[in-house]
Design a protein around this nucleic acid. Structure first.
Lengths: 188, 188
DNA sequence: CAAACAGTATACCGAACGGTATACTGTGCG
DNA sequence: CGCACAGTATACCGTTCGGTATACTGTTTG
């Protein structure tokens, strides 16, 4: 692992644990065992470093999500596949997922929020497309696909929060539970 | 409105818009039209200011929630009352609600997260109690009251997020929709 | 070999950070 | 009146902030 990767790794950990604004560039350099000119050589600025950190992991999530969100006529199955994709990704990269959740809810004018907004739009559109394509089969969804996409993502993130905080295990079983609750409610 | 209130007001706005760490004490003083010794006279530290900001609004939410979460044998009604309480509170104090949402998802080791963790525990316990009391009527809930409390809160916050971002109006109707989705899923 | 270049360190920049020592003001009260 | 005290401002503290000018490596390449 070269210096560039080490910096990315340490920055991700520190941002995730304490927040982008609360972590200084010097601290990242110390953790990575390099000096500031090295960091600035690779990333240009603290903001550029954040974007590189996000890009590295989001690209993985995006490609997996693209594969999972390919609706082929079976809504429950597609939702289940998406849920499993998210859960296994969050379980595999919990430190990153924590960071992206925090940035998603960060203040609108914060640097962090602005850095994730495009990545999150991608996710949203991916999922919206599923509901949109399902309209012919599920007529009652017409006109609600935006709300469904957002609340489905919200439900997944709620469950992932449970997992990341040790209240549950992020496996296919939990994914089934989340999807069932989303589709049929709590009495099922 | 005296200086103390002005400081609280301006700090809330700035923290909510740009985040606790990204806002400097000097900036709050400028916005409030006072100087640093005045701020430190009232709040002792930046952290103390944050706690005062949170306390002021959380105390309102807590007392309303205490009244709403009084389970009297009718689960759907109680959930509906709680949802309406949250929605009207978030609609009334959107700036504060944004801040508390951001802090709830903030990194575990950040000052902001630590400042809200007790307030959030209170909310969680209030809602858990409802599900716990409902177990005799709804046997299938036994052992799931923790998960239900957390996912119910998660569903509410997902919908409140929709409202705060202009995708919906935070009224009793949206509360009904959120509660219905939580109880019966999306096909209802 | 020599030039070019990516990568790295030393040492530094001005600005902003959170916080405070000191002193002055106004008001309430014995 | 005269004392106490809350409230406020001026001016400053040491530290850390994000970022950089300069120079030195080692490797690649014409």
């Amino acid at each position: 692992m070269d210096n560039r990767d080490t910096i990315l790794e340490q920055a991700l950990t520190l941002f995730s644990e304490r927040g982008y604004d609360a972590v200084g560039v010097q601290e990242i350099c110390d953790a990575a065992g390099i000096t500031k000119p090295t960091l600035y050589h690779y990333f240009g600025s603290k903001h550029g470093l954040l974007e590189a950190v996000l890009e590295r992991s989001f690209s993985v999530l995006k490609s997996r999500l693209s594969a999972a969100a390919d609706y082929k006529g079976d809504m429950p199955l597609t939702l289940q596949t998406i849920a499993e994709t998210y859960f296994s990704f969050a379980g595999e990269f919990p430190v990153f997922y924590r960071l992206q959740l925090a940035l998603w809810f960060a203040p609108k004018e914060s640097e962090g929020f602005k850095a994730v907004v495009l990545h999150n739009r991608f996710q949203y559109e991916m999922i919206e497309k599923v509901f949109l394509n399902a309209v012919p089969q599920h007529g009652n969804m017409r006109g609600r696909h935006q709300a469904y996409a957002l609340t489905f993502l919200g439900t997944l993130n709620t469950y992932i929060g449970l997992g990341l905080n040790g209240f549950a295990t992020l496996d296919a079983d939990l994914a089934r539970q989340a999807v069932r609750q989303f589709q049929y409610g709590i009495y099922s």
